[in-house]
Design a protein around this nucleic acid. Sequence first.
DNA 1: TTCAGATTTTAAGGATATCTTAAGAAACTA
DNA 2: TAGTTTCTTAAGATATCCTTAAAATCTGAA
Lengths: 221, 221
Amino acid sequence: MRILIVEDEPGISNFLKQGLEEESFAVDVAEEGNIGLRLALSGEYDILLLDWMIPGVSGIEICRQFRKAFQDTPVIFLTAKDTVDETIFGLQSGANDYIKKPFHFEELLERIRVQLRPKSGEHNEFTLGNIKMDLNTHQVFRDNEEIYLTQKEFALLEYLMVNKGKVCRRTRIIESVWDIHFDYNTSVIDVYINALRKKLMLRNEELIKTIRGVGYMAKDE
Amino acid sequence: MRILIVEDEPGISNFLKQGLEEESFAVDVAEEGNIGLRLALSGEYDILLLDWMIPGVSGIEICRQFRKAFQDTPVIFLTAKDTVDETIFGLQSGANDYIKKPFHFEELLERIRVQLRPKSGEHNEFTLGNIKMDLNTHQVFRDNEEIYLTQKEFALLEYLMVNKGKVCRRTRIIESVWDIHFDYNTSVIDVYINALRKKLMLRNEELIKTIRGVGYMAKDE
DNA sequence: TTCAGATTTTAAGGATATCTTAAGAAACTA
DNA sequence: TAGTTTCTTAAGATATCCTTAAAATCTGAA
C-alpha cells in the first residue's frame, strides 16, 4: 500500500514516514503544494495524508483536484485548525476524514485502516490459477494449502496479481514494491521472482510469465 | 519516438534509458554538454530531457540554442535545484516543463506523454484490422487472443500502426526503431517484418503492405 | 547491548531467448 | 531475360534472465 504525505514540517512528516513504514506502507513525502499535487495526480497512491496549510497549493485545493481524478482513493486531512466551519469546508472538498494535530500515531493508523477497509473489503482476495491471496489476513494459499511468503515476496506477488493479465514492467515493479526510483541496476526482481516460483511450485512460464526485455505478467491458465 | 537524454550521472541516465526503452522509445544518452548540444541540433529527436548541471555547455544553454533551431520539439528539464528563480530562468530559456529530482518515473513518463500529446495524439490503443495494440499494458491481440512479441517486433509494429495509412520508409523505420543512422546496408527490417507477419498470421499484402523500393505500410482492408 | 536466525540484497556463472548477419530463393521491374 | 529488391531460413553473436551462494541487513530474544 502506497501513501503520500503532503506536509511541510519535517518533524511531523519524518515521524509519520517512519511509523507508517514500520507498518509496511510505502511512504512518499512532499513538502510543497505543487509537488504534492503532481505526485498525487500520478495515481500511484492508495491513500493521501494532507496538511491543511502548506506552501504552494493549499491542501484543500490539492484535495479538490485530486478528487476529480480519483473518486475512490481516500484522503485524510491533518490539521491544526479545529473550527467547525473549516472542517466542513475540508470535508466538502472531498476528504474522507480529518484528524487534529497533535494526534496519537495509533489513532491515525486506525483511521487509515478504516479508510482502506471498505475499498479493499471488496477487492482483497485475488486468485491466479490455483493460487489464492488474501490481503486482509496477509495469507497465500496454493490448492488451499498455506504458503508462507516474506514481506517482499508478498508485495511482489500482490503487485503481479493486482495487475493480472497486464504486462508489469520492471521499472514499475521496482518503483512500486521497492520504492527505488534511481540507479536501478539490481537483480532483486529476478531473485524474488525465482523465490516466488519456487515457493509456489511453478514452472517458468506457468502463471507468472517472463516478458523478456520488459518485465513479468501474471496470467491464468 | 526518439528521446535524447543529456545527463552526466550514469545511475540516472541508465535508469531512464531502460525505463523509456521498456516504453518503446528509442533513447540516446549524452554525458557531456557539447556532445549533447551537437546531438540535439541534429534534429533527430522528438523530445529532449536535459539535466540542469552538466559538464561542458550548461543545460540552459543547450536549451536556448536548441530552441532557436527547433521551435516545436519539447524540452523537459531534470533538475535538483528547486528555487523559483532558477526554474523560471529555465522555462524562459525555452523549456516546456521541468521535473525535480528525485522524481517518480511514472511522473516523468506522464509529462513526456503530455508534451508529445499534441503531436502524436493521446491514443495508447491502436487497431489494424483484427489486430489490437495496447501501449499501456504492452500487449498485442489478434481477435482478442494475445500474441507475444519481442521488444523489437513490438517497436516495429508500433511504428507501423502509429503511422497507419502512411508509407513508412525503410530509413525512417530503421532510425526510429533501431536507432541506426548510417549503414542502411542491413536486412533486419525484412527479417522482422517476416517475423511479424508470421506471428500475426498475415499473408504478404494483408494489413502490412510492402511498398517496393520504399518501405512498408500498415493499412486496414 | 549482543547474538542467532531470518530476510533482503548483491554478485557471478550458466542457460536461454532475442537480435543480427548472411546467403540462397522468390518475386517484382524494366 | 537480367537486375534489383524482398522473402525466408539458419546460425552465430549478444543481451537478458535464471539460479545459486554468500554478504549485508534487519529482527527479536537473552
